[in-house]
Amino acid sequence: MRKPLVYMIIMMMLIAALSLYRLDYYIVKPGHAYEVSEFIEVADSHKHQGTLNLMTVAMQVATPLSYALSWLDPTSEIVKKEQVRRQDESDKEYDLRQQKQMTDSQFNAKYVAYNKLGLKTKVNFEGLYVLHVVKDSAAYKQLQAGDEITQVDGLPVTSLAMFTEHIAPKKKGDEVTLVILRDGKEKSFTIALKPIPEDAEERIGLGISYTAAQSLETTPPLEVSASDIGGPSAGLMFTLGIINALSEKDITKGYAVAGSGTMNLDGTVGPIGEIGKKVIAADRDGMDYFFALSTPYSEEYMKAMPGAKTNYEEALAMAKKINTNMVVVPVETVDDALTYLQQLKAPSTSR
């Protein structure tokens, strides 16, 4: 009786190890379509029949078991950790970077949408948002990802350029005093600058990467809440979704519209990754149209990456591969997307 029990315990331990041990790989596969109106809160929002949808991919750290099973799924892809994470980036830093990219995406979407509609906006610069602290750098073990730097040497941080220009002339051993916000509480650190580890230019500095921390006031007030979704790729669809929420007419004409692309403050769309998997997900979730960036790459980029395909080319190739009836639409700007939607005829009631 003991042997079967021992074998069972060993088997359970083996299965647990195969299921829980984390490999230096990620498994990426198609995610889902999410209607952006579900994330937008604004008084007197207009309800429409059609939908505008952001697309996701599902990504998880591989275990020996999930790694093996992924080979049975033709839509799954195994990628190395360094293709997803930055060097020395912790789990917390990765998650915060994804969240920050999403909040910046929402900021840009609101700014562009309100300007397209002629509505008022006000940008408030609040400081610098720390994304990453280089291991063994001057700021290591003092600053951390998620900190918001509001002052440097007694001066309010008013822009990215102001902070960079203040730090740049300083030499090894010079001290800077920073005031930061961390979890809503103000803290102060005095840090002696030193060479940034593994920096090709051997620069002197804090050893942090950062971006702007800013907020946007809008009239009428509008909030976008999508904290469970990371990354910047929903920018285009959030922009269209906000425009639709604030418009009496349904810009979708009653269709299910999806797409993927970042949104720049000038209204241009930026490239994203894994668009083929998003096409698969959009087709599976019943989308009628899919917007994809078609802006050609620069000559310099094509020299460095010969054979590179635009998002539109990749999306179109996948659409043909899976034989979908969904229409893949090339866009370079939010105006391209709006113009395309404007010329659509409403679907028949028998659809």
Rank of each mutant, 00 (worst) to 15 (best):
Val257Thr: 13
Asp183Cys: 11
Leu222Ala: 01
Leu246Asp: 03
Ala292Trp: 01
Pro195Trp: 04
Val269His: 04
Gly241Val: 08
Ile272His: 04
Met302Cys: 10
Lys309His: 15
Thr190Phe: 08
Pro306Thr: 09
Pro296Gly: 06
Glu201Lys: 13
Leu206Ser: 02
Pro195Phe: 12
Gln214Ser: 08
Ile208Tyr: 00
Tyr289Lys: 01
Glu186Tyr: 05
Ser225Asn: 15
Thr295Lys: 13
Ala212Leu: 06
Tyr289Gly: 00
Thr295Cys: 06
Leu236Val: 12
Thr219His: 08
Glu300His: 07
Ile229Phe: 11
Glu201Tyr: 11
Ile272Tyr: 01
Thr219Lys: 03
Tyr301Ala: 04
Gln214Asp: 05
Lys185Gln: 13
Tyr297Pro: 01
Asp183Phe: 05
Phe238Arg: 12
Met237Arg: 01
Ile272Met: 06
Ile208Thr: 00
Ile208Gly: 00
Arg203Val: 13
Pro220Tyr: 04
Gly273Glu: 10
Arg284Asp: 09
Leu216His: 12
Thr239His: 00
Asp285Val: 06
Thr218His: 02
Ile275Trp: 05
Val269Pro: 04
Tyr312Val: 05
Asn264Ser: 14
Gly235Leu: 07
Pro296Leu: 09
Glu274His: 12
Ile242Glu: 11
Lys187Glu: 14
Ala281Gln: 13
Met287Asn: 02
Gly184Glu: 06
Leu265Phe: 11
